[in-house]
Design a binder for these strands. Structure first.
Length: 203
DNA sequence: CAGTGGATGCTCT
DNA sequence: GAGCATCCACTGT
């Protein structure tokens, strides 16, 4: 896995029409906000449609239908009956793949995130997929929302804004968290040295 | 700190 | 009816 990755990628639909294993590390360092609240993406996981750990592995169901649609859309699902988790859909080899957003470095709307999370400590505000959704106010109704691609014919702007990173980023990778299949595949990516990840990466 | 277990709801078998 | 792409509180060092 490349230690350094693309400087300032252009975030458009083509960005998400690539191998999900390339898209995922390229999202590290980008800024994700929902209604202006969010921060720098410091941890993600890639889920390819041929991956037994992916929701799309067994084909389309009502829950994962968004994954089978066009890339650049938001897939939200409930985890363990309690938490929401947010993904960005990718089109990899013509079928459903996605990148799970696992942690952010809080930057925008910190007060609101602290209020929603019921805690002040920045390091734990967005350190985990459930925490990211709670801090950013992402819920099931956001499933199927669209990222702000360059406007084509107007329409209401999305709550979800993704801006590319502006500095190069040192990427680390390792096995994913909380899964029971394909447990050794190194498809979790993080910003090297970030204290805002959900769990340290082995260096 | 590390380890355990409870909360909770929806999907798919 | 089982099994989760989780988090938090609580236990015992």
């Amino acid at each position: 896995m490349a230690a350094e990755s693309l400087l300032k990628p252009v975030i458009n639909q083509a960005f998400f029409t690539r191998s999900v294993h390339e898209v995922a590390p390229d999202l590290i360092g980008a800024i994700l906000t929902v209604d202006g609240v969010g921060g720098v993406i410091v941890e993600v996981e890639a889920y390819h449609h041929t991956d037994p750990a992916s929701h799309s592995y067994r084909g389309m169901t009502p829950r994962n239908a968004i994954m089978f649609g066009p890339p650049g859309y938001i897939y939200v699902y409930r985890s363990y009956g309690i938490h929401w988790c947010v993904n960005i859909v990718c089109e990899d080899e013509g079928s459903a793949s996605a990148v799970l957003i696992r942690a952010l470095e809080p930057r925008h709307g910190v007060d609101l995130m602290q209020q929603r999370r019921g805690m002040d400590e920045l390091r734990l505000l967005c350190a985990g997929p459930g925490r990211v959704c709670q801090a950013l106010g992402i819920i099931g109704a956001d499933n199927g929302a669209r990222l702000n691609f360059p406007a084509k014919g107007g329409g209401t702007p999305s709550r979800f804004i993704l801006r590319p990173r502006i500095h190069d980023a040192a990427i680390v990778s390792g096995p994913r968290i909380g899964i029971s299949k394909a447990v050794d595949a190194p498809w979790r990516f993080g910003l090297r040295g970030s204290p805002y990840v959900s769990k340290p990466f082995p260096e």
